[in-house]
Design a protein around this nucleic acid. Structure first.
Length: 500
RNA sequence: CGCGGGGUAGAGAAGUGGCAUCUCGCAGGGCUCAUAACCCUGAGGCCGUGGGUUCGAAUCCCACCCCCGCAACCA
């Protein structure tokens, strides 16, 4: 719990059978802010993201396109890494589940641990299978007993799978949740998953016959079976840290796994759809394998698009690349961080996005930066000489720092950023009332106020860094970070009508 | 009676017993350093509905209505 513990934060890994989605952008940005915040607090931090690349869907898509599954994975994984750059993510690593060297060894190691512990058992499994979809269907999928896509009755198929005995860990998991040893944020998600745990989880299928699904990690010691997503994908969180890697005993303590997993604070950032897997299956696996369980799971909601569910068929999926291209990285970051209440569902509305951009970014911090910069330039106020801060500014800075810290510690990102931006209002108000563009009655300029404004904006840039990294850097250039002279003035956020 | 979340101004949120708050939008006024930006004022709420507890309820209790998730790898 010590705030100086190393900090390990992960996003869920994106499935590569498609291109990046604005929801993935939101999750990555939230994780990025928490990672940058931790670093700013002086904590040694490791931020991981990556891609989930196995399974029949990928194999099928590759086949349709006439390329190898690995080629498809390479192509799409690259898109996600490209998005990471576009969003200025500060991830320390990027793990891919097709990475045999790094990932497979860890995943197989965990599998062996579960097996040694007697928690994996081969069972016959019977279900309805549609050969058109190449997947199992449940009663609810069927329309009049037929596959809704192929209009044929599914066949009853029986196959052997390894099952993980998750049910036996239900109560232990419930206890972790109850005591917050595994803390779920926000609270209401905890209640939800705790209920499920108390009612008991069912055992889960952990493998598929290789003849049906071969694009995956082979089950150790049984080539007739391929790992199903759980042991394959969830294990990325520790494979990236080198779990199970053969090293000289002397070097074992140097493994990131040792530092960040065993001795650090571990936080997973995920969407509400996969909470069950993370708080259930993943924790069960770790308990079985005798590995420390994570400290926190931070669950975000979903975005709708103009009030409707985002779906390919409706054609309303928001492409994060296009948003970044049009409005800029920090505008998208700001909207997702400020307008989406942490943990809840929200709507991605074009009009709302533009209103927020105009009001907070262009008219707010952008305009304030311009007016302060011009004043300083005109009156030769140099950063080097701006050392003394007026009391009222000192007070608001102290108060803001305190509140922002409290909010961030509680993962209330949207409230933290809201609090921070109140400083913009404060500065605008001070200028309006004291009119620093007019001289004092004795003809002298209002130097004290101008210096305070300059210092405050320089401070603001520092506070802003975890949230809007690019803008923070631009502000530092404008207002002379580290005693540099006043830089060039620039428009941080041009008004919308000036955007192409 | 499957499980869970939610219903507070046009929109999004805060508020868990004591004058209903913030952001955006809207209307009027002021200023002119600034990106026609900024500042002030105002309009706009039976706090989902009906009962109850209390000196006092958005807040606690009971009943009901309506939205939304989950139960199945959609971020």
């Amino acid at each position: 719990m010590s705030p100086l513990k190393p900090f390990y934060i992960t996003t869920s890994i994106a499935y590569v059978n498609g291109v990046p989605h604005v929801g993935f952008a939101m999750e990555s940005i939230e994780a990025d802010v928490l990672a940058r915040w931790a670093r700013k607090q002086g904590r040694e931090t490791f931020f991981l993201t990556g891609t989930d690349e196995h399974g029949s869907k990928v194999a099928k898509t590759a086949k349709e396109r006439g390329i190898l599954p690995q080629e498809l994975c390479d192509e799409n994984s690259a898109e996600f890494q490209k998005l990471g750059n576009a969003l200025t993510l500060s991830n320390d690593d990027f793990i891919r589940t097709t990475d045999k060297e790094r990932h497979w060894t860890s995943a197989q190691k965990i599998w062996e641990k579960l097996a040694e512990n007697g928690d994996l058992e081969k069972r016959a499994y019977t279900a309805q299978y549609c050969s058109g979809c190449e997947t199992f269907l449940t009663e609810k999928d069927l329309v009049d007993g037929l596959c809704p896509f192929h209009k044929v009755a599914p066949e009853t198929v029986s196959e052997e799978n390894y099952f993980f005995k998750l049910s036996k860990y239900s109560q232990e998991i419930a206890e972790l949740l109850r005591t917050d040893a595994l803390k779920i944020v926000p609270d209401f998600r905890k209640n939800e998953i705790l209920k499920m745990a108390e009612e008991g989880f069912t055992d889960v299928s952990f493998s598929r016959p290789t003849e049906k699904v071969s694009w995956g990690i082979p089950v150790p010691g049984d080539l007739s079976q391929t790992m199903y997503v759980w042991c394959d994908a969830l294990t990325n969180y520790i494979s990236a840290l080198g779990y199970g890697k053969e090293v000289e005993p002397l070097h074992a303590t140097a493994l990131p796994f040792q530092k960040f997993w065993n001795s650090g604070e571990v936080v997973h950032v995920i969407g509400k759809d996969i909470l069950r897997f993370h708080a259930g299956i993943w924790i069960g696996m770790l308990l079985s394998a005798g590995i420390k369980t994570p400290d926190k799971i931070f669950v975000h909601g979903f975005l709708t698009s103009e009030g409707e569910k985002m779906s390919k068929s409706l054609g309303n999926v928001v492409d994060p690349f296009l948003e970044v291209e049009k409005y800029g990285t920090d505008a998208l970051r700001y909207f997702l961080l400020r307008e989406v209440p942490v943990g809840r569902d929200a709507d991605f509305s074009r009009q709302r996005f533009e209103e927020i951009y105009q009001a907070h970014l262009a008219n707010g911090i952008g305009n304030l930066s311009s007016r302060v910069h011009k004043l300083c330039e005109r009156n030769s106020v140099e950063p080097l000489h701006a050392t003394a801060l007026r009391d009222d500014f000192t007070q608001i800075i102290a108060k803001t720092e305190k509140t922002v810290t409290e909010k961030m510690d509680a993962f209330l990102i949207h409230e933290a950023i809201q609090e921070l931006f109140l400083v913009v209002d404060f500065c605008d108000k001070r200028m309006d009332e004291e009119k620093p563009w007019l001289a004092n009655e004795d003809g002298t300029v209002k130097m004290e106020l101008m210096k305070s404004l300059l210092i405050t904006l320089r401070w603001f840039a520092m506070e802003l860094e975890p949230f809007l990294t690019n803008t923070a850097q631009k502000m530092k250039n404008m207002f002379g970070d580290n005693g540099e002279p006043l830089g060039e003035g620039q428009m941080l956020f041009p008004r919308l009508e000036k955007l192409a």
